[in-house]
Amino acid sequence: MKLARIAMLICCTAAARGQTEQDLADGKATFRSNCAFCHGLVGGGGRGPALNLGRFLHGSTDQDIQSVIQGGVPGTTMPSFEFEKEELANLVAYVRSLSGERSKVKARQLGGDPITGRKIYEQNGCSTCHRIGSEGSVFGPDLTRIGAGRSTEYIRESVVNPSSDIPEDYAGVTVITEDGKHVTGVRINEDTFSVQLRDSSQNFQMFQKDEVQQVIHETKSLMPAYNSLAPQELQDLLAYLDTLRGDLNAGAEVKKEKGIR
């Protein structure tokens, strides 16, 4: 009896959404060509968070997921997408289908201690380049919500082998000035005639290309590889980074007009 009711519920839910195998196939095609680059071919995550865990950072209803796709996530690398209504519905259906059995499994335990992880973060001087909340440097990527925005596997790879994937916003550039000085920084902007960097002292460095000897595009990440951490240290660090799910704009003070007094 109960089983029958569940079966009916599933049947009706499916009917309400009107999903067919073809819809899911269409959703998959849209996912592969638009989403997979950041979220992985089957939603396992990468530059973007995993989408196969059955939990979503910005709400788990179809409407929530649609809103994120249509509006993007401000302050992150998740852009907004314009899809036709049906295309969007198929995409959401496919994204939900990625969770499958895993949605029932509790999120995987990382097996590390976040408190020890925080100490490792401090001992290794990570904050000389990275920022969490209002603490640290703006030279490297902001880690305030790294646990929400990136999969653990991606973060692990970024720690031990940062050059495996260098986000475009953090490409390293070295400029050799006319007097032979080497200035290295993260590329903020570059065009045919000029390049703008942020150096490790958090200063802007701006050059006209015809006034320097050479502009070198670094093929390796400016971040050193932390591959000498002990396995447990790495697990602890990852456990700490996984807890970072803050709001990037939380530190900003916003004053509001209180009206006529």
Binding site: T30, S33, E168
Partner: peptide
């Protein structure tokens, strides 16, 4: 008939 994406 689907889309293309830049090789980032």
């Amino acid at each position: 008939g689907s889309v293309s994406r830049g090789v980032t």
